[in-house]
Design a protein around this nucleic acid. Structure first.
Lengths: 350, 350
DNA sequence: CAGGGTGCTGACAACGATTTCACTTGCCGG
DNA sequence: CCGGCAAGTGAAATCGTTGTCAGCACCCTG
């Protein structure tokens, strides 16, 4: 490893002068120094710079699962922001485990200037430690139960779930099931609440055996859908609370040869790249993904600016959008005791 | 920030003793030190440790695009290995741009102990600089034209492409198109070569206008497929050299209402999570994804071990597997001058 | 009881870059 | 021709941690 002193020696100046030159100050021997730098292939030690300056120019990013297309997109958004900044991203998966998250963050706190986190649960206490350690923190996608005084980029989970519920009710469904995410996560809880409350407000209840809780993984969407199908009175429509569980549900329906949407309608939260190409094309609640990452990273970098450290916490809530494809349709047979309405003027994308 | 000296002062010992205690050596005042550490919430400065030890316990990972499910899986594999090690991952996208890759790596070299790279092109000279800087480097998915003396985890690209070609020929196709990736990347070049050579060896040529080069992005798969469809004599089968271009091709075929596989058969390189659920379920060449990440990271960490720095370069080539779903079928009309064979005993997955 | 371990200890010097401080040089104007 | 100022310089201190080194106290053995 070549140090600033070797450069200095070769250029016939002191290390201080080399340092000044590299930081853009005017210096007599600039030509000689530049030559020495080039010849030696010198580049300053990041560790030494960090030690001196107290800044690492690194941002920690902790998400539950990078192979989830949603989080991949969020991370890409964050990464794109760092393109014009001297920051890099230190990435870790928490695998939806609070424990793993703790470990990872305890380590990160020592190495980064700030953290973007999708907390594993709303009861998560790790963020408090991060704050105590003086490391700025921004939540993305998920929040804490009492997280009001943290920066956050969120999405209107309850509103999106409401759109899903209204869509299904508008088609005439009354026997509706929900496969929610863990209720100790923001999206899990809020999407379920939004969905159930909308049904309730319309006078449509949900049977206890139709109110299922999964873990946001494909496997649980699959299993819970199977359990719905084995019910004496299966639902005519299912709402799945994230992309992976939607996929699992769709696989289960295929495997059991259940027609979608003829026999059962399916609507999911979060769009997929392949959404339009699936059998059938999926009707989903969509939301900005890359943009969430961009906003989160911008917010964090802003917080790193000494002028903004003490700004009020900033909480951004983005809207959702119903993408009406072909996995939902009116129920085939009208549910017992209810007249099937005839939904008019429905148009579909494609 | 609380330093080791503050802990030392509170525990009534010297900093050296605290350091020794923390590194597991026996020390008289261990109880007092532990108390001081807990009360002060001390954790050592990573920057200072790096400066002293010359190790950062960070691995740089540079991939073209983290939202590509293949690379997401690879990164996940790498991340899972670091779970049992004290290493973290510094992640960057190169966006298939050699320039961006240069920038990112020039910066990473200063901050990491090693790098896993999927080089943007085979002519890439950056790796040489990395090696000169004394930073171990492992290639994943892609190689250099003269990369034999670098560690690498690769896949049998030519072999996979051959499987695809043989599959299509076995079905009786003779008018076959290929949408390849950039020929200055390993997978782009090798898959194309493997495909064309297999066709040639069987006495089936490829029309120049059927031999297309894309850029591994969905959009290019889409556009090039449209161009194939606008030909006076479109192909009866198409091979797309990666997952994203396969998706683009499928979208184009849908948009132009071309029946798959009735009118055109489609086979892609790389499977998708949603592969079985697509219209139609995709026939693809599959390969280990997470495993490639695991192997790459293990290899790199091994290389970081002083006992193995000077080992011979290790090059692993993994095999591919044809996953026969439903996007390929015999050509509907036999091509001019050829008798349509009747493929017997074909079984499909689902 | 002397001699020699053994087991800990603290002072100090590194690691590499940056910044402060006091200083020199050269130039300009009076 | 001299005083003063601007511009540029190097020595040294600093960031927080760890390894080296010399030293001290204690205990065991002969």
């Amino acid at each position: 490893m070549v140090t600033i002193h070797e450069v200095a020696a070769r250029a016939g100046v002191s290390a201080a002068t080399v340092s000044r030159f590299l930081r853009g100050r005017r210096v007599r021997a600039s030509a000689a120094i530049q030559t020495a730098v080039d010849e030696l292939g010198y580049s300053p030690s990041a560790a030494a710079q960090s030690l001196k300056s107290g800044r690492t120019y690194t941002i920690g990013v902790v998400v539950p699962d990078i192979t989830n297309p949603y989080f991949a997109a969020v991370v890409k958004g964050m990464e794109s922001v760092t393109r014009t900044e001297p920051y890099r991203i230190l990435l870790a998966n928490s695998d939806e485990s609070g424990e793993r998250e703790d470990d990872v963050i305890a380590d990160m706190v020592r190495r980064v200037d700030g953290i973007v986190l999708a907390p594993a649960t709303e009861q998560d206490r790790t963020p408090l430690n991060v704050r105590d350690a003086g490391v700025p923190l921004v939540f993305v996608d998920r929040d804490l139960a009492d997280g009001e005084d943290f920066d956050a980029i969120l999405v209107d989970n309850a509103g999106g779930a409401r759109q899903a519920a209204e869509h299904l009710m508008g088609l005439g469904h009354t026997r509706i099931a929900a496969i929610s995410g863990p209720v100790d996560t923001t999206p899990g809880r809020r999407r379920r609440e939004g969905f159930l409350e909308t049904l309730a407000a319309a006078g449509i209840g949900i049977a206890p055996e139709h109110d299922l809780i999964g873990d946001f993984r494909e496997q649980s969407g699959y299993q819970l859908t199977l359990s719905l199908l084995s019910l004496p009175e299966p639902p005519t429509a299912v709402f799945t609370a994230n992309n992976l569980m939607t996929l699992g549900a769709l696989k289960a329906l295929h495997d059991m040869r259940v027609g979608v949407p003829d026999e059962i309608s399916l609507i999911g939260f979060d769009d997929l790249d392949t959404g339009p190409l699936l059998r059938p094309p999926l009707t989903v609640i969509d939301r900005p993904m890359v943009e969430q990452g961009v906003l989160a990273m911008r917010l964090l970098l802003r917080r790193l600016d000494p002028r903004h450290v003490d700004d009020m916490p900033r909480r951004v809530v983005l809207g959702t959008k119903l993408v009406d494809r072909a996995s939902t349709a009116p129920p085939r047979t009208s549910p017992a005791g209810t007249a099937a309405p005839s939904p008019a003027g429905r148009t579909r994308a494609r």
